[in-house]
Amino acid sequence: MGPKTNTLTDTFGRAHSYLRISLTERCNLRCTYCMPAAGVPLSPKAHLMTADEVYAIAKTFVDHGVTKIRLTGGEPLVRKDFREILQKLASLPVRMGITTNGITVDRFIADFKKNNLKDINVSLDSLDVQKFKDITRRDYFERVYNNILLLEKEGFNVKVNVVLIKDFNDSEIVDFIGLTKDLNISVRFIEFMPFDGNKWNVKKMVSYAEIMKLVNTAYTSEKLLRLQDAPNDTTKNYSIKGFKGSFGIISSVSNPFCDSCNRLRLTANGCLKNCLFSSSESNLLGLFREGKSIIPSIAKAVKAKQKIRGEMDTLEKLKESNLHSKNRSMITIGG
């Protein structure tokens, strides 16, 4: 099989060119929507992909059409061999990105530049110090905020991810958009999604329509500009006339974008997930360590991908907790 085969094309004609690789299940924050309050059982170190295994498995995907790789976690920068992994992956012909909580990115600026990693997504769910502490269960707001400013100053493509929860941080939507006035960043509002242990409830979700209602109240139609979304983009993008940056909305729950999905996920313990919402997995690492080809398993997993959200194709199905409780918690999937 070569790169021109349809290994990464599913039965709905979606070609998967984007691989998100979780490097660790560990994190130095404890965000409520990501990690259950009691924590999660962590995979033993021996069960996690080594740096060489990350590279070898990633290369297989690249050989079959992946052109973009994003490193996630947990928090990918807590992994001690992160620099080694980054250097190995940077040798592949792909666009590199990372999703991080931003706490330690200042220590890796030179590494990012050396390895041509330009796309950095930073999670920041509140501009209020106490709210940040409440949702992350840690007191790192100033460090994260200052590192966002540093990344923007250093010329990276910075996106700030904001998971919205009703009656908690939805009052900050306009404040977040205000950041884009003088900063060349993209703020992305993400609908609260259901995962094992995060106590999801549809009443906690702030929908795309509700977000836009607040935006339209704050800005006139002349000032609100609809931007052209990139192919396979998960985000509906906007900007305010005269502002340096932009903002967008990721509406995975109220208005899913499954028709154009090109993403696959590889967990830190080497399992392939064909959809963020699906509970099914394929253990690629086990096959790899047995010396077997992982290509048939990849092809089978891709072909098994459902049309919409792992068969949870309606809001009513999302409300059935027994369905999403079969999935992993977000921290063990990878953002």
Rank of each mutant, 00 (worst) to 15 (best):
R143I: 00
R143Y: 01
Y145W: 09
T104F: 12
E142S: 11
N116K: 13
F108R: 03
G155P: 12
I165H: 00
I135P: 13
V162P: 14
L127G: 07
D125C: 10
D125R: 09
I135T: 09
F132C: 06
D128K: 14
D106M: 00
K153L: 03
A110E: 11
N147G: 04
D106F: 00
S123R: 06
N146P: 11
K131L: 03
N146C: 05
L150W: 10
L127C: 14
L151R: 01
E142A: 12
V122H: 02
K133G: 04
I120T: 10
E142C: 11
N146M: 06
T136A: 06
S123F: 02
L124D: 12
V160G: 06
L150D: 15
V158M: 05
V144T: 02
G155R: 13
D134N: 13
L151C: 05
D106E: 06
N147A: 02
K118L: 15
K166N: 04
L124T: 08
V105K: 03
I120H: 10
I120V: 14
G155Y: 14
R137V: 00
E152W: 06
L164Y: 04
N116M: 14
S126P: 15
N146G: 08
L127H: 14
I165E: 00
Y140N: 12
N115V: 07
L117M: 10
L151E: 01
N116I: 14
D128E: 15
Y140G: 14
V158Q: 11
K113F: 12
Y145E: 02
D134T: 08
V163Y: 09
D139W: 12
D119C: 07
I109P: 05
N115W: 13
K133I: 01
K166M: 00
L151I: 00
L149V: 07
N146L: 04
D119P: 15
N157R: 12
K166Q: 05
V122Y: 01
V122M: 01
I148P: 05
D119H: 15
V122T: 05
R137T: 01
D119K: 15
Y145Q: 03
R137G: 01
R137Q: 07
T136R: 13
D125K: 09
V122N: 03
K113V: 09
N147S: 05
N116P: 14
L150Q: 15
D111R: 06
V105S: 04
D111G: 06
